[in-house]
Structure formats: structure tokens, C-alpha cells
Deep mutational scan, measured.
Amino acid sequence: MGFKLLSKLLVYLTASIMAIASPLAFSVDSSGEYPTVSEIPVGEVRLYQIADGVWSHIATQSFDGAVYPSNGLIVRDGDELLLIDTAWGAKNTAALLAEIEKQIGLPVTRAVSTHFHDDRVGGVDVLRAAGVATYASPSTRRLAEVEGNEIPTHSLEGLSSSGDAVRFGPVELFYPGAAHSTDNLIVYVPSASVLYGGCAIYELSRTSAGNVADADLAEWPTSIERIQQHYPEAQFVIPGHGLPGGLDLLKHTTNVVKAHTNRSVVE
């Protein structure tokens, strides 16, 4: 069995187990497998329904001669939608809004960016022009300005110390501490036991640490421990890039980060 097929099978099995364990909360999309990078042309966006009122959005972007996937989250909030992270750029984010209108038909009224990198804030200006209120932590807003990236308009308070959590509509926002970046936030959907790890969490097929220019490698494993301790009931975990899975993604990420750190020390 090929690795790609095995990865998709694991996603399907995880979703099936969740649907059985929580039949009222989960209505997993039966329309197909989780979209992969090879299936999404740059400039297009796919939506994948995880649970009743919960979707991931998947886009792709060219970077350094390669094409990478990027995940975000959409959560229903009454007759409105909360968006977590842009679709990595203005063109993708405009396509995301169009796809949401086509498939869901509810307005996106608020959006949260989970850290300051372009795959999370690139497209904020498109959201703002569409009347979406954009939010991020003060740290993310400051770092985005320093980096020359787009800056969300509103500040999220109460997320300055490791372990801080605040309720934001249908989700809980959690600051686990520094990891992929010093400002990275985690998003949890309690009604569906869905954990969105953003770039602080890796997919299972990833074996290298990737972009760690703004990471705190020493603190990252401790931050992941905080996530595990705060959300032990999480059933569906979405990484910032690639295929979702279960809580095993947290341990896998820790292993990859520690291996990278150990290699760096040896070198």
C-alpha cells in the first residue's frame, strides 16, 4: 500500500471513529477524501466538511520552486461564519470567499490569524475590503508590521502568557507558548472536538522541520505538551499544512522538532 493511500485511509478511519463516538456532533463529509496538494491548482481553494458547521479550507501556493498546501478553518456561528487564517495570499483568499459563498452561503463576518507569517495573514486586506472584521493577538499584529505583512485590524486580548485561553464565538483560542513562531495560536472547536494546530503542528508525513527561522526550538516541545494537557479530548487535529489526523500529530511534531534540534547540535 502506497504512503499517500495509507495517509488518506488514516484520515478516513479517524473521521469514521469520530462519527461513531459522537453521532450528534459529527456529520463528516462523505463526498470524498481530504484534498491534497496535487489536486488543488494554485489560485483555487477546496472546502472539506469535518463536522456539522465545521470545515477546513485548503489552498496551495508556490514557494521556492515548489507547491505547498495550506489549511485553515471555518466555523459556523449562528447565521454567520468565523474564518481562521487566510488562504495564503490575496488571490487565494478572494477564491476562498467565493467558494464559501458557493458552498455554504453564509457571510464571513470575523477572521482570526493564528500567527504573523504570510500563509496566515496574506489576504487580510481582501477580507477587510469584503467587510470582514480581522483579528490577531497584539504580538501577531506587531510582528506582521515588522515583517511588512498585512496586519489584522483588531487585537485579541488575554493571550499574552503561555497557557492563556479565551473564548471567541464558537471557538476557544489558546496560546501554548512559542513553537513554530513566538505568537502562534491554537484554535479548538469544543462542539466538535476539532483542534486546529496551525503551523505549530505537523502532518504525519512530514519528517523535516522546514521553516524554523522564527521558531523557538527549545520551547516548542513544552508548548505541545500544554496543548495535549489542555485538549486531551480532541479527536480531529488539523495541521497548518497537509493531512489531518488525531492527537498523534502532536507527538510526531515533537519528535521531528527534537530530531532537528539534535542534528543542529551535532553539526
Rank of each mutant, 00 (worst) to 15 (best):
H117N: 00
N211W: 12
N255L: 12
S137Y: 03
K8R: 09
T153C: 06
N211G: 11
S160W: 13
S155A: 09
S70T: 07
I104D: 00
H154E: 14
G169T: 03
E157S: 13
R167A: 05
V266C: 03
G53Y: 04
H260Q: 06
I151S: 11
P232Y: 12
H260L: 05
Q229G: 12
E267H: 15
S22W: 14
V124F: 02
P152I: 11
R167P: 08
Y34S: 08
L250C: 13
S161R: 14
G197K: 02
L204R: 13
I227G: 02
V189L: 10
A94N: 10
V132L: 13
L6Y: 15
S137K: 06
H115K: 00
A179M: 15
L96S: 03
L9D: 07
E101R: 13
G197H: 01
G72M: 00
S160Y: 14
D183Y: 02
E145T: 13
V108S: 06
A215C: 05
I74C: 03
P232C: 11
K91G: 13
N149P: 08
P244K: 11
G163V: 13
L195Y: 01
S155G: 08
A259D: 15
S137L: 08
V212H: 10
C199V: 00
G65W: 06
P176M: 13
L185C: 02
Y34R: 12
P221W: 11
L195G: 00
A178V: 11
D119F: 00
A19C: 06
P170E: 14
S155H: 07
L173N: 02
F168Y: 13
T222V: 11
V171W: 02
G158N: 14
E39C: 09
A165Y: 13
P176W: 00
W55E: 00
V266L: 14
W220L: 02
I201C: 04
I238S: 01
G43N: 15
I74S: 03
L96W: 01
S30Q: 09
K4Y: 15
T207I: 15
T261N: 13
V54C: 04
K251P: 13
Q235T: 08
T93A: 01
I17R: 04
P107L: 11
D216Q: 06
L6W: 11
V212N: 12
S162Q: 15
A192V: 09
L97F: 04
A144F: 02
V45T: 06
L217R: 10
L195I: 15
N255F: 05
T36L: 06
F236R: 07
G242T: 02
A15N: 05
A19M: 08
K8Q: 07
E150V: 06
P190G: 09
Q228G: 12
I238E: 01
G131T: 10
A144Q: 03
E219C: 04
F236W: 07
H180E: 00
S62V: 08
D248K: 06
S181G: 01
V146D: 12
H252T: 14
E233N: 13
I104N: 01
E225S: 12
L83K: 01
S31G: 08
V37W: 11
G177N: 00
M1I: 03
F174S: 10
L173W: 01
S208Y: 12
A111N: 15
V108K: 02
H230P: 03
A21G: 09
S208R: 10
F3N: 15
P190S: 04
R76G: 09
A165W: 15
D214Y: 06
S137C: 05
P170D: 06
G131K: 12
A111H: 13
N211P: 07
Y68W: 04
L73V: 06
A66C: 05
E101W: 15
E147H: 15
F3R: 04
A165H: 13
E147N: 10
L247W: 08
H180V: 00
T134D: 08
I58H: 05
V212Q: 13
S30P: 05
S139P: 07
E233C: 10
L250H: 01
L204P: 13
I20A: 07
I58N: 06
F63R: 05
I104C: 00
S70R: 01
G53C: 04
G122N: 11
L5C: 11
G65Y: 12
I100E: 01
T36V: 09
G242Q: 01
Y135T: 01
R46T: 07
D29A: 08
V212W: 05
H241E: 00
A179L: 02
S137Q: 14
N255C: 06
N184P: 02
E147I: 08
T153Q: 12
I151M: 05
V28D: 11
Q61G: 06
E101I: 15
A90K: 09
T254E: 14
T254I: 05
L6S: 12
H180Q: 02
T14Q: 06
V121A: 03
P221V: 14
V42Q: 08
Y135K: 00
A200S: 08
R128K: 08
G43Q: 10
V146F: 09
L249G: 00
S191N: 06
L24K: 05
S208G: 11
A129P: 04
E225A: 08
I100H: 00
A218V: 11
T153W: 13
D183G: 01
L10R: 11
L47N: 01
E203W: 01
